[in-house]
Computed example of a mutant assay.
Amino acid sequence: MSYATYFPDNVKLTGEESDMKHFAGCNYASPVTIWGKPEGVRKGVQVHNRILKKLVAANRVLFLDMKNRMPKDSTLFCDVCHVSEPGAQHFAHEIVQFIIRQKAL
């Protein structure tokens, strides 16, 4: 499964409390700067997802591209990578539908 993120468009995230206005308003959220500079975090996840896709292609295993299945919607994310309650419901729904489509069970 690829990693889904939400980086708000045209927003320079700083790690400050004011960043949270761009997300769902969860009780618990992590500033992007906990992992590094925002642009580095975004690039790191992109590289990670690229590597995952190469591994999947080389090993012919099932792969859910959650990066492209999760809508880029602020109500679904508590911060750049953690989902809100509605986000978790959407995330779980995508997994269930993938299992059904792939007849994995």
Rank of each mutant, 00 (worst) to 15 (best):
M1I: 10
S2Y: 07
S2A: 01
S2V: 15
Y3Q: 04
Y3A: 02
A4K: 00
A4D: 13
T5E: 07
T5Q: 05
Y6L: 05
Y6I: 09
Y6V: 09
F7P: 12
P8W: 06
P8Y: 11
D9L: 05
D9Y: 12
N10F: 06
K12W: 06
K12Q: 15
K12H: 14
L13N: 06
L13Y: 04
T14A: 14
T14F: 13
G15Y: 12
G15E: 13
E16R: 12
E17T: 02
S18Q: 10
D19A: 13
M20V: 00
M20Y: 01
M20W: 03
H22F: 13
F23N: 06
A24C: 11
A24R: 02
C26Y: 03
Y28S: 15
Y28R: 13
A29K: 03
S30T: 15
V32W: 01
T33I: 13
I34S: 15
G36V: 11
K37E: 12
K37G: 03
P38E: 06
E39N: 07
G40P: 09
K43S: 06
Q46A: 11
V47M: 08
V47I: 14
H48D: 03
N49R: 11
I51N: 08
I51E: 09
I51H: 05
I51L: 13
L52R: 07
K54S: 11
L55T: 07
V56I: 12
V56Y: 07
V56R: 10
A57T: 13
N59E: 11
N59A: 09
R60D: 11
R60L: 06
L62T: 10
F63P: 01
L64V: 00
L64H: 08
L64P: 02
D65K: 09
M66S: 04
M66E: 08
K67W: 09
N68M: 08
R69S: 05
R69G: 01
R69Q: 10
R69D: 04
M70W: 03
M70C: 08
P71C: 09
K72G: 04
T75N: 03
L76C: 04
L76P: 06
L76I: 00
L76G: 01
C78K: 00
C78T: 01
D79K: 10
C81T: 08
C81H: 08
C81A: 13
H82Y: 05
V83I: 00
V83S: 04
V83G: 01
V83N: 03
S84K: 02
P86C: 07
P86Q: 07
G87I: 04
G87F: 03
G87Q: 03
G87M: 02
G87W: 03
G87R: 00
A88Q: 08
Q89W: 04
Q89N: 10
H90D: 09
A92R: 01
A92I: 10
A92G: 14
A92L: 07
H93Q: 13
H93P: 05
E94A: 14
V96I: 14
Q97R: 15
F98A: 11
R101H: 12
R101N: 10
R101K: 13
Q102R: 14
K103P: 02
